[in-house]
Design a protein around this nucleic acid. Structure first.
Lengths: 247, 247
DNA sequence: GCGCCTGCTTGATCTGGGTCAAGGAGTGAA
DNA sequence: TTCACTCCTTGACCCAGATCAAGCAGGCGC
């Protein structure tokens, strides 16, 4: 069973460095040390946070909002290769340049640390690097699942998988009543979806229409999708049963 | 600049745990401790090492040979999501089931550790988990580059990228003379290539023929490919200039 | 109200790569 | 030498999804 770090009371909503990301097992003095290092930076929706090759003077962590990681080819073809959600990190030890383009797709707050002190802190507190390892491996698994999607799934399966991904992400942890969390507020335009799925915007639109006509989902305006038949959607996604972590 | 762990003399070719993977900064007694934990296991080319969902009672590391990680859909569609080369790990802390199918594509030797003592050892020696983090992040970068390939590249670009990947991997580190390392001994069948590239075997074959007709490569028998024009091949791959690590 | 702009949908057509099918080429056994 | 087997190549055809193009709908400023 995967270990779920506990939140640290009174401070949780403010900065993931203090809870979700690394700190479930920190001693109070370690927390204070972290506290003194950090500062915040905010970005508006649509703003570019970094482009590939940029100098990254900080290691940071998403506090609120969503950002995308993408790779762009010279002729403009673009693939989103990851979503950055609260508690995900930007920057890694020993690498001072951005490997990807990073863009805010909603308003984003980052919690930043200057590189050198952060790295020292990581070295001094072993469970921090263990926790970062765990996070990196989770991301690696997610990336590999996405490779299956990009390489082998049909457009319809891709769109269904995407909706399920968003559904899983937006389900509030803890007591989600079955048949309740099925109204998805998409924070993404069709364009972002297409760039994430390795499709064009037209194909995404067509597949959503097809799923609507088949009674699997309902599309309300541009941003809201209601899953009318979760089971059917799961069948459409091409994933086997559990779809989740095996441990 | 990325840190290159030094080899430990006299013992290097035997087990990556003792050098490349984790041990460049180990103290002698830590090495001895590792030494007592490990044992070896071998697999023939083509053999299955694990399938998704299997209990993994060990954490292991590739010593020699190459294996593939793949995800399979219920109807048989398969995507290779990673290559395991010497020093890569199988299994991760805190996860006791295989997330992927693992197959030997050449004869493979693994260096194995029982889970519990390995995890304790990782906890006790902080630079081991730092090193594992570094490796995981490298794999994550590779996976994301592959996502761009799967999502956006044409068949020709995919095949060209693949040849360059093999070329880079098989170039002996240190003094490779330019224009020398261009004879590739492919350890892979067309089928494995196709499964890795998100293509069919026929398309791979056609693209290789096309690249041959255009004078970019030469195909000698089934297993040997000679790169006649590396620059042209790099242009064909769709990657920008350096293609390498930015730091 | 009106125009404008951005994001979405839908239709018509095209095409890259998949599918199906028929050989070739190397290898190894008898 | 022949057969059998596996892997690879090539051709003919097809189709899912890209491309090109024409609206549509909602929001926002004036």
């Amino acid at each position: 069973m995967k270990q779920t770090p506990e939140l640290i009371s009174g401070d949780c909503s403010e900065c993931p460095i203090r809870h979700r990301a690394v700190c479930s097992r920190c001693e109070p003095e370690e927390l204070d040390e972290l506290e003194q290092l950090k500062y915040y930076r905010t970005y508006k929706a649509g703003q570019t946070i970094a482009v590939r090759g940029d100098d990254l003077t900080t290691v940071s962590s998403v506090v609120t909002g969503t950002a995308t990681l993408s790779r762009v080819m010279e002729d403009g073809r673009t693939q989103i290769v990851g979503l950055l959600l609260p508690s995900d990190f930007i920057g890694r030890p020993g690498r001072t340049h951005a490997q990807y383009d990073i863009q805010a797709i909603s308003d984003v707050t980052l919690c930043c640390f200057r590189r050198a002190p952060f790295e020292q802190m990581v070295t001094r507190t072993p469970h921090v690097s263990e926790r970062m390892l765990e996070m990196a491996l989770d991301e690696l698994d997610a990336a590999r699942d996405w490779m299956l999607l990009l390489g082998r799934k049909t457009a319809r399966e891709k769109v269904a998988s995407f909706l399920l991904l968003i559904q899983k992400r937006s389900a509030r942890p803890g007591g989600e009543e079955l048949g309740e969390d099925l109204r998805l507020e998409l924070p993404l335009t069709r364009e972002v979806m297409a760039t994430y799925l390795g499709l064009t915007i037209e194909t995404v639109s067509r597949q959503l229409t097809a799923l609507r006509k088949d009674g699997v989902i309902d599309v309300q305006g541009k941003k809201v999708i209601v899953i009318k038949d979760l089971i059917a959607l799961m069948m459409e996604s091409g994933d086997d049963d559990d779809g989740g972590i095996l441990d």
